Simulated scan of single mutants.
Amino acid sequence: MLIGYARCSTHHQDADLTAQRSALSRMGVDDNRIYIDVGLSGTNRDRPGLREALAALRAHDTLVVTKLDRLARSVRDASDIAEEIEATGAALSLGGSIHDPADPMGRMFFSIMAVFAEFESDLIRARTREGMAVARTRGRLRGKQPKLSRAQERHLVQLVESGEHTTSEVAGLMGVSRATVYRAMERAKSNGATE
């Protein structure tokens, strides 16, 4: 039996996910046997879709992925997943080519692809950090903006301190979570202590 696995890192990669599903179908995987993870990085091993795909594998089955970087983004994870698949007596197909762990050339090719997948992931992280640093120096990256203005936060503190409303009621009135109310109260206390 063929078990398919597809993954995309963000919820905005519908085209990539559709392409992966189409490729898996062309390789003979039934649509109801394709397991998917959306919004999860390949560097994160704890993925529900991957867990389900691996659990569905039995001896003589084949886990099919379009490319190795959809399965793992680190050499260690790629090796661990391949070993787990081999331990069940199943096979791994990468873009239609069966990975044979007993073949020295196959092992080398698999290792090289895993190194490139990890390298690509590292490059993406480095570019993201560089882009954020440039945006920060230009004043375009200011971090998360507060939910309430200073005036709204002062009003919130007054409402809570009046004792006429519960924290939940104040949160509802201000359109924020209770955690936001608690943080505002903590800031008010610390500001009062420093003044």
Results as ranks from 00 to 15, higher is better:
Leu71Arg: 03
Ile85Asn: 01
Arg26Tyr: 03
Glu186Pro: 00
Met185Asn: 04
Gln145Ala: 15
Arg127Ala: 01
Val160Lys: 08
Ala91Phe: 08
Ile98Ser: 05
Met113Arg: 03
Ala59Gln: 15
Ser168Asp: 12
Ala56Glu: 12
Thr66Ile: 03
Val38Glu: 10
Ala15Asn: 14
Ala59Arg: 15
Thr167Ile: 08
Gln145Pro: 09
Ile81Leu: 10
Ser190Lys: 10
Ile112Gln: 09
Gln145Phe: 06
Leu92Phe: 14
Leu123Tyr: 05
Gln13Ile: 06
Ala56Cys: 09
Thr128Gly: 10
Gly172Thr: 00
Ser190Trp: 01
Leu17Arg: 00
Ala193Thr: 13
Leu68Asp: 09
Val134Phe: 00
His165Ile: 03
Gly42Pro: 04
Met105Ser: 12
Val157Ile: 14
Ser149Tyr: 10
Asp100Val: 09
Met1Phe: 08
Asp80Leu: 15
Ala102Asn: 12
Thr66His: 11
Leu156Ser: 06
Ser41Gly: 11
Ile81Gln: 05
Ser79Ala: 15
Pro101Asp: 01
Leu94Ile: 15
Ser74Gln: 08
Val160Ser: 01
Gly192Pro: 01
Glu118Ile: 04
Glu153Pro: 05
Thr128Asp: 06
Ala171Asn: 09
Arg127Tyr: 05
Ala59Thr: 15
Leu54Asp: 01
Thr62Glu: 14
Arg107Phe: 04
Ala19Glu: 14
Thr128His: 03
Glu86Cys: 04
Ala179Thr: 13
Glu164Gln: 11
Asp80Pro: 02
Gly131Lys: 00
Asp77Ser: 01
Thr43Ser: 14
Glu52Asp: 12
Ala72Pro: 01
Leu156Val: 05
Ala23Phe: 07
Ser162Arg: 02
Thr43Val: 14
Ala193Tyr: 06
Pro101Ser: 01
Leu92Glu: 09
Ala19Gln: 13
Glu120His: 00
Gly192His: 08
Gly106Lys: 05
Leu2Ala: 09
Thr18His: 15
Glu118Ala: 00
Glu186Ser: 04
Arg33Phe: 12
Ser9Lys: 05
Phe119Met: 11
Glu83Gly: 04
Leu94Glu: 11
Leu92Val: 10
His99Asp: 06
Leu156Arg: 00
Ala91Arg: 15
Gly96His: 02
His155Cys: 06
Ser74Asn: 08
Asp100Arg: 06
Cys8Asp: 05
Gln145Ser: 13
Ser41Gln: 10
Ala188Pro: 07
Glu186Gln: 13
Asp30Glu: 13
Asp14Phe: 11
Ser9Asp: 07
Ile34Ala: 06
Asp77Asn: 02
Gly4Gln: 01
Ser22Leu: 14
Ser162Asn: 00
Ser121Met: 04
Ser162Ile: 07
Gly192Ile: 06
Leu54Phe: 08
